[in-house]
């Protein structure tokens, strides 16, 4: 089991290094940092000095090593546009995105699994069929359209919910949260629904098909032949077996929630990392872009690591190697 975790960790580190290399390359290929920082008016001498100071004369591998070492310590350099440390920009925006993404993921998981299980158990019921039909809409509608549709209904027509922003936030240390104020919670509703909807429908359809598959397995038949009550078969024997493949895919989806947050944050003018990134792209703010890239990669690596650990918890076949062989 330790070997399994270490292997997952190693894979994560390799992925992070690969992404770091791409993020590092951006500095060299997207504009010239020296020109970007000094502007058009700088003298040749200024440029030479800054180039030297930034270490741009060093061999590329050395620069990359320095970049990785700095990034590992949370130092991503200084934003070209805002002149502030990228790390503090990110920390400032992080809570908004994390709250949005985590709530969306919970929403998508809980509702998706519940609806998927329902659709599998009541396979032929009309509600199940209706849910399945609606889920097709979720799969096919682009995220921004759902967001705009929600804004039109709930903000423009009904005036129940605010159409943009985070509402009032409360600061807990450096973390700002919108969960403790009414306006903050109200502001969360539509972005969470928008961001979670696609994942919800995917998870739901996946749970349904996996569960139908598991319900055909021999051990389910045997459980029935033993007279185990149907509810117990569904929720104890089938559900846990269903969740193993679902969690793999859903884990990757969770990383996707953070990535897709860009669109949702733009639609709702949500002051999170996605919006920060979109602004950075418009102004070719390379340090912010590369830091965002690393952040998204980190989220993906972290979720897949968590998925691996949850796996071990769910599937005894992965635990302790093989005790029958280990005496």
């Amino acid at each position: 089991m330790l070997a399994y975790i270490l292997r997952s960790l190693m894979q994560g580190i390799i992925v992070m290094l690969a992404v770091a290399f791409i993020a590092f390359s951006m500095f060299r290929f997207v504009g010239d940092p020296v020109v970007n920082m000094l502007g058009q008016e700088a003298t040749l001498q200024d440029r030479a000095e800054l180039t030297e100071r930034l270490g741009l004369n060093d061999p590329v591998p050395l620069q990359f090593a320095r970049f990785v070492a700095d990034a590992a310590q949370g130092d991503f350099g200084i934003s070209y546009r805002q002149g502030r440390k990228v790390s503090s920009l990110i920390l400032e925006r992080l809570p908004a995105t994390v709250e949005l993404a985590v709530l969306s993921a919970i929403f998508a998981f809980v509702t998706g699994i519940a609806l998927g299980v329902y659709a599998a158990i009541r396979r032929d019921g009309w509600i199940a069929n209706l849910v399945m039909a609606l889920s097709l809409i979720g799969v096919s509608l682009p995220t921004f359209l759902i967001g705009i549709g929600l804004i039109y209904i709930f903000a423009v027509e009904l005036r129940w919910l605010p159409s943009f922003g985070r509402g009032d936030t409360v600061a807990l240390g450096w973390w700002t949260t919108g969960l403790l104020t009414t306006s903050g919670l109200k502001s969360l509703v539509m972005p969470v629904l928008t961001l979670g909807f696609l994942q919800l429908t995917l998870i739901m359809r996946l749970v349904r098909s996996e569960m139908l598959e598991v319900m055909r397995a021999d051990f389910i038949r045997f459980a029935r032949a033993r007279g185990i009550p149907e509810r117990r078969i569904e929720f104890r024997h089938a559900l846990r077996n269903t969740l193993i493949p679902v969690i793999t895919i859903a884990g990757v989806q969770l990383g996707g929630v953070v990535a897709f947050a860009i669109v949702t944050e733009t639609v709702f003018q949500w002051p999170g990392l996605g919006a920060l990134f979109v602004n950075a792209v418009q102004f070719v703010d390379v340090p912010v872009m590369s830091a965002y890239l690393l952040f998204v990669a980190f989220v993906f690596v972290l979720t897949s690591l968590i998925v691996d650990l949850v796996y071990i918890g769910l599937d005894p076949r992965l635990r302790t190697g093989n005790p029958a062989m280990a005496k």
């Binding site: 397995a217 021999d218 051990f219 045997f222 033993r226 007279g227 185990i228 009550p229 077996n241 005894p316």
Partner: peptide
């Protein structure tokens, strides 16, 4: 359901797949 297992038992062909692997 109460008859199954209680009054009629059943043994299946493949013991590798008859048992729930997670319990």
């Amino acid at each position: 359901r109460k008859v199954r297992g209680k009054r009629i038992g059943m043994i299946f062909q493949d013991p590798l797949t008859s048992l729930n692997p997670l319990y």
